[in-house]
Amino acid sequence: MDLTSFLVQALIGLYKGSLYWILALGLVLIFGVVRVINFAHAAFYVTGSYLMYTFYTYTSNFIVSLIIAMIITGALGAIVEITIIRRVYKLETIYQLLATFGVALIANEAQKLIWGKGVVYISIPETLSRGVNLGGITINYYMALIVVTGLLLFIATIVFMNYTITGLRTRAVWRDPVMSEALGINTRLIYTLVFFTGTALAGLGGALTVPLISVGPGLADYLIVTAFIIVVIAGLGSITGAYIVAILVGVFSSILVLIVPELDIVILYIIAALILLFRPHGLFGER
């Protein structure tokens, strides 16, 4: 194993990690504010992928398709929140998990019905498909775009949460919904908005994924587990933690492919389990 391929894998890991981060961000936001673990989150992510595929095939306009996919996914998330999730807020955590699990089942099957059981993909827009050739593997601008998007989203989230009044209100709702209501904050509306934002972000991540990975049934099953592992290692609710861990997971898993091609995922999971054994609330968890 030479240094170049090592570096190339690390760079590839960076964009993979950024995609994981965009997936995890919505999950963290929804858990952080609404306190519901959204089992269907990856299903929304894949919905974004499929929508992107459909709109891009029809319009051939990358940006427009991206935005439409994002908004529709967010709207679906808001609908799910209003019709289902809202009714289980007062029930035990178990039922909240189960409700989102039911949503995930429905979404996965609906996707098979609409887009079939095969895989779909689109090609990277021409201007972005060029790039730098390193040791036989091309690192293209599209990958760079994803890394930048991830970073921008991270900065935007931190600024929003810490330096705007709406962000402050959002944090307040997370800490004490009842008191927030008593201060005149419409918590229901915030919950719906957070669900919209979280699932729209998932949709964005999914849409960005289609040009890189063929999307098909089963992808959501795999992604939700990865996303869960990231947010659990980071500590449930920690935004900065989720960003760092997502990038690390991306880079590590890419490099592991070089060292132990057979067991990359297994080793990653085992590392995760060991971290939790010693830091039950994650690396960046509050408690």
Binding site: V178, S180, E181, A182, L183, G184, I185, N186, T187, R188
Partner: peptide
């Protein structure tokens, strides 16, 4: 009325 409306 919902709580936040009362507060407002």
């Amino acid at each position: 009325l919902p709580t936040h409306r009362i507060a407002r």
